[in-house]
Structures are given as C-alpha cells and as structure tokens.
Design a protein around this nucleic acid. Sequence first.
DNA 1: CTCAGTGCAAAGGATTTGCATGCCG
DNA 2: CGGCATGCAAATCCTTTGCACTGAG
Lengths: 148, 148
Amino acid sequence: MSGSSITELHEDVARRLSARSLRYTNARRALVEVLAGAGRPLTLPQLLELDASLTQSSAYRNLAEFTDAGVTNRIFVDEEHSYFELAEDLTSHHHHVVCSSCGRIDDFTATGALEAELHRALDEVGASTGFELSTHRLDLVGRCADCR
Amino acid sequence: MSGSSITELHEDVARRLSARSLRYTNARRALVEVLAGAGRPLTLPQLLELDASLTQSSAYRNLAEFTDAGVTNRIFVDEEHSYFELAEDLTSHHHHVVCSSCGRIDDFTATGALEAELHRALDEVGASTGFELSTHRLDLVGRCADCR
DNA sequence: CTCAGTGCAAAGGATTTGCATGCCG
DNA sequence: CGGCATGCAAATCCTTTGCACTGAG
C-alpha cells in the first residue's frame, strides 16, 4: 500500500476522496497534514489547537467523511473524546500504548511473532464463535513517562 | 483470583466494597447478578432491561463506585454506549470479540502462546517508550453470526 | 451557475449531578 | 440517629445537525 512522502499521502487521500465524489479542499488537506504530522491519534480539541484554521463542526464532519472513505480511523478509549488517526493503509499496521492517567496515546509496531499469534487467534476464535473476523485491535495500557 | 460460585462472587464483592466503606445494597447485588449472568459486557440500557428494578442514575453511580473499587470494568468500543463487565480478577482474564455491525461483544480466552507474546510486548514496548505498562486489551473485530 | 463544503448556533443524547427522601448500620 | 444510597429531574458535555453563505469546478 502506498508510498510515504507527504505528497504521496495527499495523492492517496485525493484518490480515495474522488472515488466517492468528495472534494479535497483546503480544510481537508489541513486535517490530513495535522494527523500526519502528529504521528499518533488526536482528539478533536487537539486538532483544533494544532491548526487554528480548523473549525469544530467541519472537522467533525470531515473526519466522518474520511472515516467512511477509509482515510481515517476513529478510536474509542475513554469517555472524554474520540481519537482520530490516518487509516492504517495510509501509514502502516500498528497498535496503541495508552496512558491510563492522562489519556495520551502513542503508536507502536508489534513484533512478527506477536502478529503471527494475533492472526492465529483471529482464525481460531472466528471458527469457534461464528464471527467472521477481519481485524484486531491491541492496546497496551499503563502510565506514560510524564504521569509516572 | 477467588472462587467461582455466585455466593463466593458476592462475598468477594462485599469484601471489596466494605474495604472502601461502601454498602452492598440490594440494588448493587442486582447489578452484580445481571453482569455475572450475562457473561459478556453489557450497556446500561441492556442492564436496565434485564432487571427492571434497576434505575438509570443509580446504576451509573453504582457502576462508577464499582469501577473505583475494582469490581467492574468499563469498556469503550463505540460512540453509542459504554459497556460494563465484572472485573477480571472476579472472573478470569479474557479478551473481546466485537461485532462491527451490531455492537455485540463476547468474551474469549487467548491461547497461552498469544498471552506469552502479549506479555513480551508489554515488556519490550514499556522499555522503549518510557511507559510503565500494566495491562493489555485485545479486541478481535468482525461480524457476528447474526449480522453476516 | 450549481452544488458540495463551511461555520455559526442550536439540537441531540449518553452520562452526570443536585437535592429531597429512604434506609442500613 | 447519622450518613450512605436512591431516584427523579435538571444540567453537562461531546458530537451532530439545520441553515444560510461561500467557493470550487
């Protein structure tokens, strides 16, 4: 999937949007840039703070369009806020480290051995539960360096 | 840890509550019974429906007390509702299978090999990120038998 | 021109809180 | 008795929606 420069990222996003007849406006580009720059999931207030040109309702609306178009993911880890990140096939498969104290979320990449076990679990559990499983989500939870 | 009969469960809960000077009232017992009977995480509306004697605000308040006292966990998987379940050390360590269509959540137990890899990841990632990691959360996501 | 996108303000909805009353210890 | 617990109704707060305006194609 996809290259890794910012230019390629925008091209990828543009492609996914145009496939759904959505425009790639300045506000939407800004959203993608902030998410790409952060390298970790962000809440809406964080997004607004990182780019003052963003507006609350449009940001929510655009993130909803993005999620439908496979450009972003929405993550639920606490009651306070949703977190948003670029979709995995625009970045790379990863998991999250969550600070249970301040809510901070960072990305991490699992080892091949762990991923292999996760896929094995997907097959086994799918077979035994009747679920048609497609994805896994893994969070490691603890306290970040600042909160320790 | 702890035994597994309903009686023992109530005794465990009572112990944890009294340790925090909280009473184990009928409403609280009812909450524990419904959660234990379900064997999977439930939303507040589901709890209210399964036991008509429960009240919304008291149920929320008691679940908050329970979570503080280590009797229940609160789970966030979608925007709609929080899910509640008995704490792992009152039941047993497990993970969740989530239906992305209807929101249904079931429990499953991971293999020893997978758990071993998860603990290895906890150590490695903790060391490299500065987080003091204590727990992991794993969801397998797909569509349940009813939604396929 | 036309219609998707934008932004403000108001609405929505799960969860929380204020307060008067009930009940356990 | 004294204070925790309860339940109703009202308040909160993140998120969504209505609507008139703007701008891209």
